[in-house]
């Protein structure tokens, strides 16, 4: 299967008052074309930072230390002073103008809170015209407006509402607009960062349906970042589990839910309530993750792990092939 995005040995640090925190630690991950990769983990595990690093907008004061982010570009993308040529490119080596040309055009990002993600001073329609003009400056304004109306219709929003301002829209509608903005220029990769977390459950389901419809329609490759494993069970083709900035396990969705390999994944799944099975006993993971500013040697999950061994305290376990068809970073599976 052709890959769209490959991340190799990516590390990102935040310098804070309490010390340096490694939010993403030597992460390698691959996204196959036309597939949805779920990126899951609890708060502070680095999943959003990882997502943001792909569009090179890691929040201040984060800094990408090392690694490669390789994108398989499907066409030449012109920018002010030249052209980003098609083929595999390392996003970390592009300059500001080149990155700007790719953002919105080839890489789209949807944020968690639709209530604050639109410019309150601008009409909804202007947001669309703006992104079209930014990447295709030769498009006449009228054409951009026609395209905007078509897009809004596809999102189930009345086209005459292009003249409304964001505050006149509900949360669900604003998230539709954000999705529409992401898809305006039919990007290759859509990164959705907790796109439904701030929405109510029915609207959440509506938005997830919309995303999966559009994903088929636009032939999208998607990275869905969320803490909600239920959402991923419904939408993802494969899932990567993150903990303290590291990838713990990657597996096809069904395999991950059926036979989770990493002790963290196992424990996490046992703590997720299932509305259909109220009698199943929920468990929890004792303790809390180690501080990122004071990392411990070896596997970061070791202090909370029921299977911890001596070797776990030495070196961080590398990712190895698991029996479920994925990869797992755990010494339990060494040599098997």
């Amino acid at each position: 299967m052709p890959t769209l995005l490959e991340i190799h040995n990516l590390s990102i640090e935040y310098k804070t008052r309490l010390g340096t925190a490694r939010a993403v630690d030597n992460v390698s991950i691959t996204l196959d074309e036309n597939k949805t990769l779920g990126l899951a983990g609890e708060s502070g595990c680095g999943k959003s930072t990882l997502g943001r690093s792909i569009i090179r907008l890691v929040p201040y004061p984060g800094r990408i230390l090392e690694g490669e982010i390789l994108l398989n570009l499907d066409e030449d993308v012109p920018y002010e002073n030249g052209v980003v040529e098609k083929g595999q490119i390392n996003l970390l080596q592009l300059d500001g103008d080149q990155m700007r040309a790719l953002r919105g055009k080839k890489l789209a990002y949807i944020f968690q809170d639709p209530m604050t993600s639109l410019n309150p001073m601008e009409r909804i329609g202007k947001h669309f015209v703006e992104i079209i003009k930014a990447h295709e400056p030769d498009t006449p304004k009228e054409d951009a407006q026609v395209r905007t109306k078509d897009l809004l219709e596809a999102l189930d929003i009345l086209p005459e509402r292009v003249l409304d301002y964001p505050h006149q829209f509900s949360g669900g509608m604003r998230q539709r607009v954000m999705i529409g903005l992401g898809l305006t220029l039919t990007p290759q990769l859509l990164i959705a960062d907790e796109p439904t977390t701030s929405l109510d459950v029915i609207v959440e389901a509506q938005i997830l349906n919309l995303i999966s419809d559009l994903k088929d329609k636009f032939n999208l490759t998607m990275m869905l970042i969320t803490h909600n494993l239920g959402v991923l069970a419904e939408t993802a083709d494969s899932i990567a589990i993150m903990y303290t900035g590291r990838i713990m396990e990657v597996a096809p969705t069904e395999a991950l839910f059926e036979s989770p390999q990493h002790p963290y994944t196992q424990a996490l799944l046992q703590s997720v309530p299932d509305v259909r099975k109220p009698d199943r006993k929920l468990s929890w993971i004792p303790g809390s993750p180690p501080s990122l500013t004071e990392p411990i040697p070896g596997c970061m999950f070791r202090p909370r792990c029921p299977h911890a061994m001596e070797i776990c305290a030495t070196e961080p376990p590398p990712l190895m092939k698991s029996t479920s068809g994925g990869i797992v970073a755990c010494y339990l599976y060494e040599g098997s």
Partner: peptide, 15 residues
Amino acid sequence: SLMAAIPVPDPKAKK
């Protein structure tokens, strides 16, 4: 509809 919309941690569940 509220019950139907709840995400279920099971990829085989049907909506």
